[in-house]
Design a protein around this nucleic acid. Structure first.
Lengths: 158, 158
DNA sequence: TATTGTTATACTCTATAACTATA
DNA sequence: TATAGTTATAGAGTATAACAATA
């Protein structure tokens, strides 16, 4: 975990006051765990974001930018890298000659499946301090916050 | 909220699978809420981190670096800024002539108190989709993860 | 006039290195 | 030999601007 992607400030001792601090602390470690999973297959989380989005069918780059909430220039780089690794490829769009569809390749699908396996393991380990019931409860509570909270809709970059 | 401090990737729709994704999504918004609180008193979260640490007594810079998990050069800048704003000041350490104690000033204490007030409001609003019982439950579950989980001890930068 | 993809560029944040002074 | 503070600098990551091609 890099410094201060832990969010806000400070180690656990003083996180107890605002639940939000605690939330950030735990989330930072979850993020870290997932980053490690991605690293194990030689990818960054964003690469997996793209592969996951296109695993059941192609998507044009602009849509990927929107969905993954990254700026267009970043998506250019990500797709370049995925092409270089032979995990995905750009193909011209049938009707819109401006657009490029990003298709997943067999090797890309393999990566997705391996990461699914690894991240299920990682997730199980990460939440192991909680019972199955507690894990369900946590999931429900977070879902409520994500749905009803001020985490509203999203407007994409350009 | 800046893009991808949302963590990992993607908007809420697909966050349901791994609780960790959900966790990150919600945490990003909590972080954002707190950043807005800090911004309302003209500070960054890290400034408040420093002020909070020294509100009940001075601390030398190196300790602040450790506690807030930021690199030494960052702490130099933060304390410079706090001094420029008249919220804190450096004073020589009594016995160790290498060290500088960072003391909070009256204006700094005022800021801390105002932020406490504002962030209690913000917190209440943020977690309002949950009942008081649910909020307590969430706090307990997160505490368990922070305490027993792989969020282990910390080794400070230099 | 707006959108897609790309390049180039700026800005911020994170991290390291090197140095002085002191322990 | 190690620690405290500072300066300088390198490197990622994030964001904007501008352009050509197409809608």
């Amino acid at each position: 975990m890099s410094f201060n992607e832990s969010g806000i400030h400070g180690p656990p001792e003083e996180l107890s006051k605002w639940t939000g601090f605690l939330l950030n602390w735990v989330a930072a470690h979850a993020r870290d765990a997932y980053e490690q999973v991605a690293a194990r297959v030689g990818l960054k989380p964003q690469h997996l974001g793209v592969l996951t989005q296109i695993q059941h069918g192609p998507m044009i780059q602009a849509r990927l930018s929107d969905r993954l909430m990254v700026f267009k220039p970043v998506m250019v780089t990500l797709v370049n890298e995925l092409e270089a690794m032979g995990l995905a490829e750009r193909r011209p769009h049938a009707s819109d000659r401006r657009a490029l569809e990003v298709h997943i390749l067999p090797a890309g699908l393999d990566k997705v499946r391996e990461v699914e396996r690894l991240s299920e393991q990682a997730s199980a380990e990460f939440f192991s301090p909680l019972t199955s019931d507690e894990q369900r409860t946590l999931h429900d509570l977070l879902t409520k916050l994500a749905k009803d909270g001020p985490t509203g809709p999203w407007h994409s970059p350009r």
